[in-house]
Amino acid sequence: MSILIQLLLAFLSTIGFAILFSIPKKSICKSGIVGALGWITFYIISIHLNSYTSATFFAAIVVGILGELMARYYKKPATVYIIPGIVPLVPGAGMYYTMLALVSKDFYTAINKGTETFFIAAAISLGIIISTSLSRSIKRMKHKN
């Protein structure tokens, strides 16, 4: 049940970001689906593996691959689907907790949270890199044949 609620909330949240970035009207719903599935991946994996970093990594891969597939199918730029889906994964919370620990002079927690934030950002990068290069190499292979 809680998964369904999370799915719905993530869908609505991604739609909001999609309109903030002014994506084409017909793509709003699809980008919401991409974002919701990405968030659900994050949610499930973060519960089971208890690690935000790997959860973000897999979520970014899901968003990237789904975005590339949608882009191919509907003939739109892939960023239209990827950008709204990535925004909820950006570690705003990590940034906040790092800053909170820093200003309260709790340097141990600050380092802890800071490294986690950094690694979450790196995980997003890695996820997008993998999905994008995968789709590029498939495109090149098809070109050759």
Binding site: Q6, L9, A10, L12, S13, T14, I15, G16, F17, I19, L20, W39, V87, P88, A93
Partner: peptide, 13 residues
Amino acid sequence: FGSMACAFFSLLF
């Protein structure tokens, strides 16, 4: 809609 996104995000958290 941008603020709606943020508001739903706070529920997600």
